[in-house]
Design a binder for these strands. Structure first.
Length: 382
DNA sequence: AATGGGTCCAACCGCCACATG
DNA sequence: TCATGTGGCGGTTGGACCCAT
């Protein structure tokens, strides 16, 4: 137990991934998706265990990753979420589109913890250090109760975290069971702590109302924090495009488009990939279809989301001699090629038929897998 | 220039939960 | 019901990098 059987096999590489390995994995996943991670290394020609491949994809190669520094707003959000959720990094990451649990965990351990300590706040209890030992046991549950967040250990459900439009208390929706408007506290407390899913559509719609009521997560929110969150959402442009449904693949703002263009004009190999994507994308008809897969969402709203993905893809930090430029074989993706598919197999079929990538059919991970499902439902309903 | 300490982060490890036969 | 395989998560670590001396 513990060590996966695939890891026991001999001659499996460990340690840092080479650009060549990244390339193989990326090419494989983008072409065929992921059916079973344990079979990926073999099929992709990698001397790695499936677990390692999965981690690499999740934490580094996935196109919807937001790379770069954390904004102050993101840090604030992480701190707030940590106060409520503790070290449940995957759940925290689910609230931060494009960020991985590993990334957030690292940020917490290297920066945020220290920041709080400097401010005289116990990073574990989020109480002033001199009060840290007092009523420590109450902290987490109190916060949860204030926020009307159900406490649970059940891992089965995948509810959606919503800002209520009617009132500040948090509501939980698993998109099936709780859409009758019951308050979270009426719903099972078994759910939220086990797994929460951000429903970006409801999230933003309702967020606006919550902000108007000076509340967030059912708690009073300072104006500065509201501003922070507001900015965070603005950055992700949820509000400007009704087609947005995949929060882990945020859109670019107009300025982002400019930056992409500029970025593409230099001689950076990565930017050449970006340029390649941009060229492909320029051929894409900008007709967003709401009855579409998540991938098609990239095309929605002037292609912002698609650009974001491409920018992120271009943002792979290959070393100076990276071979992406000539070795990655991305297929031109046309919007009409994107069909809603209900299974991985179907996605494979589409892939073979259209030669395009449909990420909605890919098993995603802690950050986005739930979003995928949630948003898929949303788009089916629209 | 060499080196030692600190920081950061990608990746690994160990465990748990769940699915399947 | 049990054994086994796999995915997912949080904790930990090793090495690359940075900076002061």
């Amino acid at each position: 137990m513990g060590r996966h059987s695939c890891c026991v096999k001999q001659k499996l590489r460990k340690g840092l991934w080479s650009p060549d390995e990244d390339e193989k994995l990326f090419n494989y996943i983008t072409r065929f998706g992921v059916g079973c991670w344990s079979s990926v290394p073999k099929l992709a020609g990698l001397q790695r265990c499936g677990k390692s491949c999965r981690l690499r994809w999740i934490n580094y190669l996935r196109p919807d990753l937001k790379r770069g520094m954390f904004s102050q707003q993101e840090e604030d959000l992480i701190t707030s979420l940590h106060e409520v959720l503790g070290n449940r990094w995957a759940q925290i990451a689910a609230q931060l589109p494009g960020r991985t649990d590993n990334e957030i965990k690292n940020l917490w351990n290297s920066c945020l913890k220290k920041k709080l300590l400097k401010q005289g706040i116990d990073p574990t209890t989020h109480k002033p250090l001199n009060e840290g030992n007092v009523k420590e046991e109450k902290t987490s549950t109190e916060s949860l109760q204030k926020m009307q967040i159900p406490i649970s250990t059940s891992p089965s459900a995948t509810p959606t975290l919503l800002f209520s439009s009617q009132c500040s208390p948090l509501r939980i929706s698993d998109s099936n069971s709780y859409d009758d408007g019951r308050l979270a506290e009426e719903a099972s407390r078994e759910i939220f702590m086990s797994k929460q899913v951000l429903d970006p559509l409801s999230y933003y719609d309702n967020f606006q109302m919550s902000v108007a009521q000076n509340s967030c997560y059912g708690l009073p929110v300072s104006s500065s924090y509201q501003t922070s969150i507001r900015t965070l959402f603005d950055q992700n442009q949820f509000g400007t495009n009704p087609s947005y449904g995949f929060s882990s693949m945020p859109s670019l703002t107009n300025s982002d488009h400019v930056s992409v263009t500029e970025f593409s004009s230099d001689n950076n190999p990565s930017s050449k990939i970006s340029s390649l994507f941009m060229n492909d994308n320029n051929q894409v008809k900008e007709n967003s279809s709401n009855n579409s897969s998540n991938m098609s969402i990239y095309n929605a709203g002037g292609g912002g989301g698609f650009h974001q993905m491409m920018e992120n893809a271009a943002g792979f930090s290959w070393d100076a001699e990276n071979k992406l430029e000539h070795s990655f074989q991305f297929n031109a993706i046309k919007s009409e090629d994107f069909k809603t598919c209900n299974s991985w197999e179907e996605g494979q079929q589409n892939l073979q038929t259209h030669g395009s990538i449909d990420f909605s059919c890919y098993p995603l991970t802690s950050l986005s897998e739930d979003l995928t499902g949630a948003n898929f439902d949303i788009f089916q309903q629209i």
